[in-house]
Write a protein that binds this DNA or RNA. Structure first.
Lengths: 128, 128
DNA sequence: TAAAAATACTCCATAGGTATTTTAT
DNA sequence: ATAAAATACCTATGGAGTATTTTTA
């Protein structure tokens, strides 16, 4: 089990959507599938119940989610404590015109998310 | 930062000896050096102060040690919680004739250590 | 000079990507 | 027909090893 896998799992568990999770993590969708599969094989339990398009956390998934949150939070804290650059947490809402956002936001957000996984980012594009 | 790196760091921090840590982890010595270097580069701080043969934890290293312990313990707990196979912790002492031990113990111990990193194993070989 | 860590290099395992197939809406 | 996840396959990065050099006790 590696932190990278736990972070992928966390993102999928939050969004309940492999494709969107991949987008947020700047991964290909298949890479996210692979990471989850690795975890599932390692643990010998499936973490998501695939019901066609909809996916839902299994009991094992629920349980892992608790730990994944704690572990990644601790990692952030560790990085902050050692480097002095405390990682932030909280919530940010953002409104931006569709045309601008669709152009620049994806890369920016992916980068931001990597640095601040504990910030609940809530972007929305408005049409002018 | 990956759990594998933290585990290598933990072992070095405990033994204060790269070579012995490598032995315990079933790694080559250079691999352990590499893992520590990766962490140090990632954090932008050196974790050990190399004073010739002796090494000692830097302040940053001390700080990371706290988190590394918590994080790896949580990982063990997570594995246990999800799989139901609780990982053990405690202390084991073992006495075994030198000739037998030197033959079979190294591989066995390395494997055991991977499964139960929180067990403080204390093997000693006696001469007959 | 002996013992430990760093370094140089090599190799291969695997993480991640692309393209496609499967599955369910 | 569409949209999402799984699968097959390929590539390249980097993790790990061997061999060597550096360093210091």
């Amino acid at each position: 089990m590696e932190l990278r896998n736990l972070k992928a799992f966390l993102t999928v568990a939050r969004l309940l959507n492999f494709r969107k999770a991949a987008e947020m993590l700047n991964y290909a969708q298949s890479s996210v599938s692979a990471q989850i599969r690795i975890l599932e094989e390692e643990l010998g339990k499936s973490l998501f119940q695939r019901m066609g398009r909809a996916i839902v956390l299994t009991d094992a998934g629920q349980e892992l989610l608790q730990y994944a949150q704690k572990i990644t939070a601790l990692e952030q804290e560790a990085m902050g404590a050692v480097t002095g650059t405390k990682s932030r947490q909280g919530r940010i809402s953002l409104r931006i015109p569709q045309t601008i956002g669709s152009c620049f936001l994806p890369d920016i957000l992916a980068g931001f998310y990597k640095d601040h996984p504990n910030v609940d980012f809530n972007p929305a594009c408005v049409t002018l």
